[in-house]
Design a protein around this nucleic acid. Structure first.
Length: 263
DNA sequence: TTCCAGGCCATCT
DNA sequence: AGATGGCATGGA
């Protein structure tokens, strides 16, 4: 259906559609308790408070106004960690392919609406931990396979308790995550922001690097660690929202630029 | 062909 | 500490 999104959240198949009244949600099986969706979409967030806490800067203000309605999702911590382990040094389209293959191979099938293609949930850490590295490499994740397997074993064994991390400080949680091989500052910050509720986390990736350089350091080429230090002190306790707007704005601009070249 | 990708790590000064 | 090259794989 046009103007709608279909996907799997946790073990729920769901189709979302924006209407004049609000968000229309269809599930394939009856749902009485909707907290899983309210939580995922972060519907209780006070956006006035978020906007008031962000710094005033023309580049950020423009990105926000161009993408009004953009929200931060609250993803499952394991799914988030695993997905971003697979993301390092890869293009977003390819990351989606690998995650999709991983779900089809090892995720539980979920009930869909009649007429819709089959769908699978994201595989549990226990399921991935039961794989061999060769099995994972067959999904074309390359050197990331050992990282994913190691993380799955850590989570499945209870050696790393992801849900407990949200009770720590941001730097403590980040440190716990970066102990995993294949998880550095950027991936850890993604997990903090997208699944653990640390709104101040500000992942600095290649897109954000370009956006910060253009908007805040024109004509300069600051080091990555300098950009990390700057963003940590500059964007404040809701910095992660600023990151989202800048990220999507940078990507959309790149897309527009490519389509202009094609004309 | 070469370069780069929602980085990270080992290995140098 | 800080800089450099390698890493699997695929698309432009």
């Amino acid at each position: 259906v046009n103007n709608s999104w279909t996907g799997v959240i946790g073990q729920h198949w769901v189709r979302l559609q924006q209407t004049d009244e609000g968000i229309l949600a269809e599930t394939s099986t009856p749902s009485e308790d909707w907290t899983w969706l309210v939580n995922y979409l972060q519907l209780e967030v006070n956006f006035h408070e978020v906007m008031a806490a962000l710094p005033r800067h023309p580049v950020l203000t423009r990105a926000i106004s161009l993408h009004a309605g953009l929200r931060l999702l609250r993803q499952d911590p394991w799914e988030c960690l695993a997905s971003f382990i697979l993301s390092s040094n890869k293009k977003i389209v390819h990351i989606k392919c690998i995650v999709n293959d991983l779900c089809e191979q090892y995720g539980n099938p979920v009930t869909t609406m009649s007429g819709d293609p089959s769908a699978h949930a994201f595989p549990s850490a226990e399921r991935i931990a039961g794989c061999r590295e060769l099995d994972l490499r067959a999904l074309r994740m390359g050197f990331r396979a050992s990282y994913l397997l190691n993380a799955a074993e850590a989570v499945a064994s209870g050696r790393l308790s992801l849900n407990q991390l949200s009770h720590l400080t941001a730097s403590e949680a980040r440190e716990a995550l970066t102990r995993l091989p294949g998880v550095g500052r950027k991936i850890a910050d993604c997990v903090l922001l997208f699944s653990l509720g640390f709104n101040e986390a500000f992942p600095v990736d290649v897109w954000i690097t370009r956006a910060l350089q253009a908007g805040w350091f024109p004509g300069q080429t600051p080091k990555l660690r300098e950009l990390v230090a700057f963003s940590e002190s500059y964007f404040g306790r809701y910095g992660g929202y600023a990151q989202q707007y800048l990220f999507h704005h940078a990507r959309l601009e790149a897309t527009n630029f490519r389509s202009e070249l094609a004309e």
